[in-house]
C-alpha cells in the first residue's frame, strides 16, 4: 500500500471462474504510472477476460483489480472516466460523421468545451479534412486514427490497447506507431497482443498469460528477447495441447 500512488494498474489474486472453467486464475501484477505493459498469450489464455476485468466490463469472481487506486467493482463508474480503449474494432458508428462520433462520445464522458476538444483531436490525428464525412467511408487506417481520437477525448490517464495492430496494413501500422509515440510519455498503457516483436519493442513490463495464469511477469530490463521468445513458444505450445 506504500506505493499506491505510483501504481497505475494492479491485480491481486484476480480470478474469474464460471463452473469448472477458470478464465483467470489468481492473476497478480502491479504496473507503475507511466509504464507500458504488454500482455502476451495464446488464444483462450484469458487475455480478453483480463482486459475486460481491468476495464470494469466483467466483474471478477474473486480477488481485486485497481486502476489508479480505484476498484474495478466498487468505483467502476469513476474508474471508467480515467481509462480509454483502443481496440481492433473501431468502436465508432459508421452512419455518423467523424465529428458527430466524437461529439457523441464527448457527451457520454461529460467533456467540457466539446467543439474545441473535438477540433484539436481531429487535427492531431490529421482527419480535419474528413470531419463531415461518414465513418462508413473511412479506410481501416483512418478508422484506427479516429478511434484513437475517440479514446483520448476525456484525457484518460490509462490507455488499454486490444490487439490494436490486427488488420492494419504496414502503412497504417506506422501511423499508429507514431501516434502512440506521441502520447506515450503522458499515459500509462496496457496492451494485449500476440505480436511478440511489437509488444516487446514498446513495453516496459511484459506478462505472459497461459490458461488464465501468469506464466511470467517481469520488467523489460530483466528480459532477454531471444530467451523470452523461446519461453513464450513453450507456453503457447502448452496452451494449445
Amino acid at each position: 500500500m506504500t506505493d499506491a500512488t505510483d501504481t497505475a494498474v494492479s491485480a491481486e489474486g484476480l480470478t474469474r471462474v464460471f463452473g469448472v472453467r477458470k478464465a483467470l486464475d489468481c492473476v497478480d501484477f502491479a504496473l507503475p504510472v507511466g509504464g507500458f505493459l504488454s500482455i502476451f498469450g495464446p488464444n483462450g489464455a484469458g487475455k480478453t477476460t483480463l482486459l475486460r476485468a481491468l476495464t470494469t466490463l466483467q466483474a471478477p469472481s474473486s480477488g481485486t483489480a485497481r486502476v489508479l487506486g480505484l476498484d474495478v467493482v466498487r468505483d467502476a463508474v469513476e474508474l471508467r472516466s480515467h481509462i480509454g480503449l483502443i481496440s481492433h474494432n473501431p468502436l465508432l458508428y459508421p452512419d455518423l460523421s467523424a465529428e458527430e462520433n466524437l461529439v457523441f462520445f464527448s457527451d457520454m464522458y461529460g467533456v467540457e468545451d466539446v467543439s474545441g476538444r473535438v477540433r484539436d483531436l481531429l487535427d492531431a490525428v490529421e482527419l480535419s479534412h474528413r470531419r463531415f464525412d461518414l465513418v462508413r467511408t473511412f479506410s481501416r487506417g483512418m478508422l484506427q486514427r479516429l478511434s484513437i481520437a475517440r479514446a483520448l477525448l476525456h484525457r484518460p490517464e490509462v490507455l488499454f490497447l486490444d490487439e490494436p495492430y490486427s488488420g492494419l496494413d504496414p502503412h497504417a501500422m506506422d501511423i499508429l506507431d507514431s501516434l502512440i509515440a506521441q502520447i506515450r510519455h503522458e499515459h500509462t498503457f496496457v496492451m494485449v497482443s500476440h505480436d511478440l516483436a511489437k509488444g516487446l519493442e514498446l513495453c516496459t513490463h511484459a506478462l505472459i498469460l497461459a490458461k488464465g495464469k501468469v506464466a511470467r511477469y517481469d520488467e523489460k530490463a530483466y528480459i532477454d528477447d531471444t530467451t523470452f521468445a523461446a519461453e513464450y513458444r513453450s507456453v503457447v505450445g502448452l496452451g494449445v495441447a
Binding site: 470494469t56 466490463l57 472516466s81 480503449l85 474494432n89 468502436l91 465508432l92 458508428y93 459508421p94 457520454m108
Partner: peptide, 18 residues
C-alpha cells in the same frame, strides 16, 4: 443491431454512464 455491429455497445459501456 447497429449498436452491436462495430462493437459500439462496448464503447458505450466503457463510458461512465449508468
Amino acid at each position: 443491431v447497429h449498436e452491436k455491429d462495430q462493437g459500439c455497445l462496448e464503447a458505450l459501456l466503457l463510458s461512465p454512464v449508468d
